[in-house]
């Protein structure tokens, strides 16, 4: 395993960069971070629609979320792969395809987390803000969301873990993230697939387990702080 790391370690971490496109572990992390970054506003918007008092907004968004949660991510990736070039008119690269699929997919899941966070707050928060003269949107943005988002932080870290794991599906559309790079190394070496895929598993484990411990720590910190208040 050390031989593999010595010969292919740099390739595994950053792909062909700087002589070619960035890839490997770096691409996995960038993709997951960008996916979460873009999915957050999408999820917020979907959650707002989902709990809005207008059925015109609520019903189609609820339907959309059910559809996305009922289909595998792979399906969303394939739709993005075939629909995006048709919609935008020019060829989309694998990175944008994967990013678009992840933003839609994670947005739907995040919206459920955000909705749970908002609905977990006592109703009195919204009611007292309204009775103080704030409009619905103002009370949402100034009173409800800041509290809800704070409580959601551990879930957001968990969603990031899911994102990291989901980027592995970029393998299927030949996006050169870490799983695909591992596959390439395995094809070049021919003889050591078990070690390479163990290394791949270990890489994901270190990232995701570290993050999940962080989420756990965050949860305890938040619990301590809310007791004091």
């Amino acid at each position: 395993m050390f031989d593999i790391l010595k010969n292919f370690g740099v390739f595994y971490l950053i792909g062909q960069y700087p002589h070619g496109p960035l890839g490997g572990l770096a691409l996995t992390l960038i993709l997951a971070a960008l996916a979460l970054l873009f999915a957050l506003p999408v999820g917020l918007l979907l959650a707002m629609c989902r709990i809005s008092p207008f059925p015109m907004l609520r019903l189609p968004v609820t339907g959309l979320i059910y559809v996305i949660r009922g289909t595998p991510l792979l399906m969303v990736i394939f739709w993005a792969y075939f629909l995006l070039p048709t919609l935008t008119g020019h060829k989309t690269d694998q990175f944008s395809t994967m990013l678009a699929a992840l933003v839609i997919f994670d947005g739907a899941y995040l919206s459920e987390i955000i909705r749970a966070g908002i609905e977990g707050l006592p109703r009195g928060q919204m009611e007292s803000a309204r009775s103080l003269g704030f409009s619905y949107l103002q009370s949402m943005v100034l009173v409800v969301l800041p509290q809800a988002l704070r409580n959601m932080l551990p879930s957001l870290v968990n969603q990031f873990i899911s994102s990291v794991k989901e980027t592995s599906l970029g393998y299927i559309i030949s996006l050169s993230e870490v799983s695909f790079v591992a596959g390439q190394i395995s094809t070049q070496l021919m003889t050591k697939p078990a070690e390479i895929y163990l290394l791949l598993g270990l890489t994901y484990f270190v990232m995701c387990f570290g993050l999940s411990r962080f989420a756990f720590w965050l949860e305890r910190q938040l619990a301590v702080r809310s007791v004091k208040v």
Partner: peptide, 9 residues
């Protein structure tokens, strides 16, 4: 903590 894809591979 490891994606299903890596398990399959």
């Amino acid at each position: 903590n490891v994606p299903l894809l890596a398990h399959m591979l």
